[in-house]
Structure formats: C-alpha cells, structure tokens
Amino acid sequence: MALFDRIKAGLTKTRETFFNRIGSLLTGRRIDEDFFEELEEILLMADVGVNTTLLLIERLRQEVKHRKLDQSEQLRPVLREELSQLMKSEDQEMHFGRGALTVWMMVGVNGVGKTTMTGKLAHHYRKQGKKVLLAAGDTFRAGAIEQLKIWGERAGCPVVSHAPGADPAAVLFDAIAQAKADGTDLLICDTAGRLHNKADLMNELTKMHRVLTREIPDGPHEVLLVVDATTGQNAINQARIFKEATNVTGVVLTKLDGTAKGGVVVAIQHELGIPVKWVGLGEKITDLDEFHPDDFVQALFE
C-alpha cells in the first residue's frame, strides 16, 4: 500500500537522524566529560528520566574506570548490557490459565491504545488457532462499544457487550459465563480509559478485577497496562497506581511508530518490576510485536 510505504519512508528518515547521532557519539570518540554529557542528553531526551539516567551513567563511569576504557566504541557493548539488564525480566512470556479458559484485562489512562491493542491481540491469538472472545468493558466513553465491535469483526471473534452506561463489572461477569459456556480459550477484557488519580474510577477497576479473580480461580492471568510511548515521567505514576489497583502483570508500549522513544518503560521496569510484553507499531491489526529488550535498547542507542 502506497500510504504505508510513505509512512515507512517517513519513519526511516527520523530514525536515521536519531541513529546517526548516537552512532557518532559511540564511534571514534574519547570517553570524557563531554561524552557523558551527550549521553545523558540522549537518554533524557528519550524520556528515560533523571533518576534512571543518572544511575546508568554512574554505572558506566564505574565500568570505564574499572576496565580502563577510553574509546567510545569500547563502551557500546557495556552500555547495551547495562540497559538490557535494567530491562530484562524473567517474566517476558504471556501467562495462560491452568484451566481451559485464559482471561486477560487491558487497563490504562485515556487514549493510550487499549481497545486497538485488544483487537490486535485477539487477531494474533486467533491466527494461532485459539478461540477468542472480547468483553466490551468500556461502557462509558461514547462509541467505545461500537469501536470494539469493529475490532471484533476484523479479528473474527465475538464481542460480549451491554448497553452504554451499564455496569462494566457485569459485562465482565457475563463475558466469563459465555466464555465458559462456549469453550472459549482466551477472553480479553477491554476497559474504559481512566486517570490513575481518580479514586472512584480506580475503585471501579478494582471491582472489575475482583470479578475476574472470583470467577476464575487463577485469573486474571494477565493485566496489561497500556502505555503510550509519547508519555513522559507521569507514566511511572500511572504504572504504580494501576498496579496497586489491579496487580498489573505487564506493560504494552504503544505508538512506537512515532518519534517518541518510550524510555520511561525503563524506569517502570526498573522501579516497579513490571515487564514490557508487547509493543504497538501502528493502527493496523498486525501492527504489534512482542517486546524484545535487546531490540528496544538498540533502538534507543544505535
């Protein structure tokens, strides 16, 4: 498709300028104060955040001293290693239920890409031969139910929904009943976007989560926090509070097809121990990828 190619071309351009910069930082340079300052700038500009950036740079300084490095090329593997270490998790795989039914829940602030990712994941697992069901747990936002239904159609799986304004916990309850009745393998529950500092809305989410815990003994098997890559340091607050409310098990980093780097997930992983599991790379149903820490780090730096 011409349009897609054009997007791709645009992307390549931005990527190139960015990579070139890092490339030039890491090739043929002496490791000196200027070098560290530039590195700091690159990390900060990627939304890695002050604390994590300083931590990384401190570790690098120690390595440089320890291993007596003085050329920037020598630092390349060390840098990648340190960052990957912050990003690596034992828990990168998606969790499935021990029983017949697996239930996942999508959570996050408004507009980050929950519904889109629900559609993408549904499609992904349907292609693997799973019987997938979607629950329209956003009964609040105008057009949200309709939107999920369209994704359901695209992915080729049914959607359980109630009327706009209905109790979302009841939607989930019904969805589970239907999933159990018709032998569904995977139930993915979309939820309404909400700001993490709204106590009543977070309570509602906890209530929805509780329905899943109650109805599925070892569920929900995955609570995915969707984070928009353009988000700055506030994403750490988002992750912290959503985790308290619903025991988040993984992060989905969306909109990586833009120019934002999504560096804040380094802090989310490092400070809160929530692994990134998927990335969103566009608006098409196939625009998703499993998260590969090494690739991500590479994209930050090379």
Partner: peptide, 12 residues
C-alpha cells in the same frame, strides 16, 4: 496535546 506528553512534545 496530552498534558502528560514527554520529551517528544517538542518534535510533535
């Protein structure tokens, strides 16, 4: 613009 946008806000 989302008030929580990070460093990329400038580019955008």
């Amino acid at each position: 613009v989302d008030a929580a946008t990070g460093q990329d806000a400038v580019t955008v």
